[in-house]
């Protein structure tokens, strides 16, 4: 009886899903899905090699400092870095007085100790990076109705994050002629900027890195657009995964120990089973 009901229920679901298949296939043949500009012209990120790549990789602190400089002088005008505190910058190789000086260079929200009024004061190492806009409405108003996203986790919030950031920053270009020929309605609207590495090809952000030496690096590295884009990608990988080095440094001894313990466990198992071995293990 169970099996009879089972067979009927099974056939019910099978027929229903095959009916969906037939309907779907008929629709597909009648109206094949139209190609879209996003599908045809969107590109995967370019290759980016960082010193932190691979299971043994570590951050290049010099590069992180340069990337921080790019963030501070360019990106921070519009993008927040909510999850990073000034004290965290010590990990980039800055000394304590340097961290204090960096923090003091930012104005953060505070409270006047005499009047209790909200005011601005110089930052201290325990403060977090201040937001460029008081709220999303202000951010939208200043950026053609788009909110510049927080950058703390950007390198983990996109597939292949650091390479994506690098590609996006260096990928602004004119719309290809063949795109306009094939999809005339996909012309980049006024106020947006064409970039094949962006999911829907047009983003509100204007190219932020445009000229060599837009930022003056203190370590003598030539600040080409490509170099600045690489540096800020490396920096944002650090802001997204500050424990990356510690994680790998912990992982190796853990794996080493487990390998050793597992070999011992295997030998113990062999010894315990020695008197029970049959014709097959």
């Amino acid at each position: 009886m169970t099996r009879l009901i089972g067979i009927l229920v099974g056939l019910f679901f099978t027929v229903a899903v095959l009916w969906a298949f037939v309907t779907g296939a008929a629709n597909y043949i009648a109206e094949p899905p139209a190609a879209t500009a996003e599908h045809e012209f969107h590109r995967h990120p370019k290759e980016l090699h960082l010193s932190s790549d691979g299971p043994f990789g570590t951050f290049d602190k010099q590069q992180l400092q340069r990337g921080f400089q790019v963030y501070k002088e360019v990106c921070s005008a519009c993008h927040s870095l909510n999850h990073v505190a000034f004290r965290d910058l010590a990990a980039l190789g800055y000394s304590e007085p340097e961290v204090k000086a960096i923090a003091a260079g930012f104005q953060v929200p505070g409270v006047d100790p005499n009047t209790g009024e909200e005011t601005l004061r110089p930052g201290t190492p325990t403060d977090y990076f201040p937001k460029p806009y008081p709220n999303d409405i202000a951010a939208r108003a200043a950026n053609n109705n788009a909110v510049p996203p927080d950058l703390s986790l950007m390198a983990k919030a996109r597939h292949n994050g650091p390479a994506y950031i690098y590609s996006l920053l260096t990928g602004f270009q004119d719309q290809p002629a063949e795109l306009l020929k094939e999809f005339p309605e996909a012309k980049t609207p006024t106020g947006l900027h064409y970039n094949p590495y962006f999911a829907n090809l047009n983003l509100a952000m204007a190219p932020p890195l445009t000229t060599t030496d837009q930022v003056s690096y203190g370590d003598g590295t030539k600040a080409t657009v490509d170099q600045m884009a690489q540096d800020v990608s490396a920096f944002l990988l650090w802001t997204a995964e500050p424990k990356l080095e510690k994680r790998r440094q912990t992982g190796w001894p853990v794996l080493g120990f487990l390998l050793f313990a597992t070999v011992l466990a295997y030998l113990a198992k062999q010894q315990v089973w020695a008197d029970k071995k049959g014709k097959k293990g």
Binding site: G6, V9, G10, L11, F13, T14, V17, L18, F21
Partner: peptide
């Protein structure tokens, strides 16, 4: 997935 779903139910119930 429609073909695979059909097989899934056929397998267990039929």
């Amino acid at each position: 997935s429609q073909i695979a779903t059909a097989y899934y139910f056929l397998h267990f119930l039929v």
